[in-house]
Design a protein around this nucleic acid. Structure first.
Length: 703
DNA sequence: GCAAGGTC
């Protein structure tokens, strides 16, 4: 009997797809890497009985990197990374042994069906899988087709069975566009990162980052934060004036009215309006209106919305929120947490998911009522064709999950219940008054039916005092008209939630990588997370972005990514040649790089203001073997010795303290020896700073 | 030591 190998992008999908195709009768076992499983069942394929073997990879099998010797920072000129430096594909995660695993499972198989995610990355992984597996599969005879691609837009019975019934071929152009993206990101990112890092680390002693990275996603991400900072800095408060009126509605109740002109920026004009109104004793009702309005129930939950709420309402950073969500997913509490989709599949069992929550101590009442009275149809969202929206998969209590896991689970569950609840309905009443020649309005909201806000109380319409009942022509006594002087206020620093929205809007990163980029700019000390999870750029972050603006604004603008993606899409659509696009784009960035290197003095001028030159930082410690003057020890990371006379910097072993070692000198180069000791176990050894950087013997590694 | 994209 022939065997059909089928490969999905991740273990969870292999299992769901196998379950659907085998109608539940399958036998499963773990593969040799412990991460992927193999699900086997019998069936028919190409008109014959076959054995199906469904398994998966874990994302990309391969990753792109430079050949080893081009990873030596002090031996390679970063400019070489644009073309000369050769790249190679390496296993993305050596611990998983993915290639070996695929070959063990693929050996002796006759057909392969590729079930990778239906996006460009998935198409690329198809070819990574084929590269590993085709050499060990049985050879086709008579030109029979053996490689198939399944295309599906959701993980539902109909969609998966349809995909199986009309198999196609993997799309080589789409895969090539990803190859191009990988190579561009690697070459451009590493060249700029290495150059900046080496240049500024060789000049300044207090940069507060051992790595000054650059990337087509992280740099625009930082750019957004600095753009807001600049707006705050350049903000000039303006004074404005508003009129506020109060009328008596009852013996002891009064109503505050808003001026229809809202505000004026000229004091004298405001004063004129005040003079025209303040002597009037009566306010006349010009019109009243009552409108029924609705606050819509939320769309089904996708990843970026979950991350926004986690940051703004739960105070959890995107990276942490994702880790927490992943744990909830692997423990079976929620569905797959990485999805762009906000629309439930047609056959999604909404009631079943709801029933699981019917005995929960916190929301049993609401859930039972919904089940009894009938759930509301969810709003029509966007179907990205990846995974269903994020929903709870089983009931859990606070005691069971605890901490942040519980808080995230509670939010996901409340959000899910809200999507099948009714809209919140309220009545908006407004009364407009005339006092003299000026119009004033007051409005109020009263809730008619709370709908979903009952399960999401933080969304509820705030309680307000009800407005008096009145009609056109009624008059009220004016108790006060006054003029208030106010000032426009600057915007605040960007919140993480706002940043996520900006990134999504400009196509910077993906649902899975947005948290990584934000984390990157934090870890590199380009921004700090302030109260309310607002991102405040550091001096380093500000200087970098201002420097890019000065030299070549495209390096930091969000269009840097979209412009390249436009080119990549041409490859994917078969409208442009892969080599040509790659060569052309690399050439453009190579020119940008050389221009950047030539203009670096422009950024340096900004650096000088915020940071101290190496010669002015650190304290004298040991003697240089060349000029015999004292060298300075710079403790800030990366710790190093700097000889200002020779203008040389010597790196030191990290994560420990450095002291003078018995005033002994190295017999080879006359540099004074220093002692490195680690904080914890009292491990220590003496070393020569020169030999540590320039190994004196052949075949001796640096450091 | 570097990018961004998958995923565990």
């Amino acid at each position: 009997m022939k065997t059909v190998l089928m490969v999905a992008e991740k273990p969870s999908l292999a299992q769901s797809i196998a379950k659907i195709l085998s109608r539940g009768s399958l036998s499963s076992h773990k593969g040799l890497n412990g991460a992927c499983s193999i699900h086997e069942y019998a069936g028919t394929f190409a008109g014959q009985p076959v054995r199906f073997k469904m398994t998966s990879v874990c994302g990309h099998v391969m990753t792109l990197d430079f050949l080893g010797k081009y990873n030596k920072w002090d031996k390679v000129d970063p400019a070489e990374l644009f073309s000369q430096a050769p790249t190679e594909k390496k296993e993305a995660n050596p611990k998983l042994n993915m290639v070996k695993f695929l070959q063990v499972e693929g050996r002796g198989c006759d057909y392969i069906v590729l079930w990778l995610d239906c996006d460009k990355e998935g198409e690329n992984i198809c070819f990574e899988v084929l590269d590993a597996v085709l050499p060990v599969m049985n050879k086709a005879h008579g030109g029979e087709k053996t490689v198939f691609r399944a295309r599906f837009s959701s993980i539902t019975d109909t969609d998966i069975c349809n995909a199986m019934a009309c198999l196609g071929e993997p799309d080589h152009n789409e895969a090539l566009s990803v190859d191009a993206r990988q190579e561009l990101d690697l070459r451009i990112g590493c060249a700029f990162t290495r150059f900046q890092t080496k240049y500024f680390q060789g000049k300044y002693g207090d940069l507060d980052s051992s790595l000054i990275s650059f990337g087509p996603c992280q740099t625009p991400t930082l750019g957004f934060c600095v753009e807001r900072h600049d707006k705050i800095q350049s903000f000039k408060p303006e004074t404005y004036w508003v009129l506020q009126a109060k009328v008596n509605t009852d013996k002891d109740r009064s109503l505050l009215l808003d001026w229809d002109r809202v505000r004026v920026f000229d004091r004298e004009i405001a004063q004129m309006f005040l003079n025209m109104t303040k002597l009037k004793k009566e306010a006349q009702v010009e019109a009243t209106s009552k409108k029924e309005k609705a606050k819509q129930r939320p769309l089904a939950l996708n990843t970026v919305e979950m991350l926004r709420v986690a940051s703004s309402s739960l105070g959890m950073g995107p990276q942490h929120a994702m880790q927490t969500a992943e744990r909830l997913y692997t423990q079976g509490y929620i569905s797959y947490p990485r999805t762009e989709t906000t629309h439930y599949p047609e056959n999604f069992d909404l009631k079943g998911a709801l029933r699981q929550q019917a005995n929960h101590p916190y929301w049993a009442d609401m859930v039972k009522r919904l089940l009894a009275e009938g759930i509301n149809r969810p709003r029509k969202g966007h179907d990205a064709g990846d995974h269903p929206p994020i929903t709870p998969m089983r009931s859990a209590t606070e005691a069971e999950l605890g901490g942040d896991a519980w808080r995230l689970y509670e939010y996901i569950t409340r959000h899910f219940i809200a999507t099948v609840s009714h809209d919140c309905k309220y009545l908006q009443s407004t009364i407009s008054f005339r006092i003299g020649p000026e119009l004033f309005t007051c409005s109020g909201k009263t809730v008619l039916s709370p709908g979903f806000t009952e399960i999401m109380p933080w969304q509820s319409v705030p309680l307000e005092e009800s407005l008096p009942t009145c009609q056109r022509g009624d008059t009220f006594t004016v108790s006060e008209v006054k003029m208030l002087e106010k000032q426009t206020s600057p915007p605040d620093y960007l919140t993480e939630a706002e940043l996520i929205t900006l990134m999504e809007k400009h196509g910077i990163g993906t649902d899975a990588s947005i948290p990584v980029h934000i984390n990157n700019i934090c870890q590199r000390h380009y921004v700090t997370v302030e109260t309310g999870r607002r991102l405040k750029p550091t001096n380093l972050g500000i200087v970098l972005v201002h420097g890019y603006y000065k030299i070549d604004a495209e390096l930091v603008l969000p269009t840097i990514r979209s412009a390249v993606e436009k080119q990549l899409n041409l490859i994917a659509q078969g409208k442009a040649d892969y080599r040509q696009v790659l060569g052309h784009t690399l050439d453009v960035f190579k020119r940008k790089f050389h221009y950047f290197v030539d203009s670096i003095a422009g950024m340096d001028e900004l650096m000088e203001v915020s940071f101290s030159p190496l010669a002015a930082t650190g304290k004298p410690l040991s003697h240089c073997g060349k000029c015999h003057r004292f060298m300075k020890y710079i403790q800030a990371k990366p710790s190093r010795l700097h000889c200002s006379h020779c203008d040389e910097t010597y790196t030191l072993p990290q994560n420990g303290t450095i002291k003078l070692y018995k005033e002994l000198r190295c017999p080879l180069d006359d540099f004074e020896l220093v002692l490195w000791s680690s904080g914890s176990r009292g491990k220590s050894y003496p070393l020569c700073p020169y030999c540590y950087n320039h190994p004196p013997f052949r075949d001796m590694k640096k450091g």
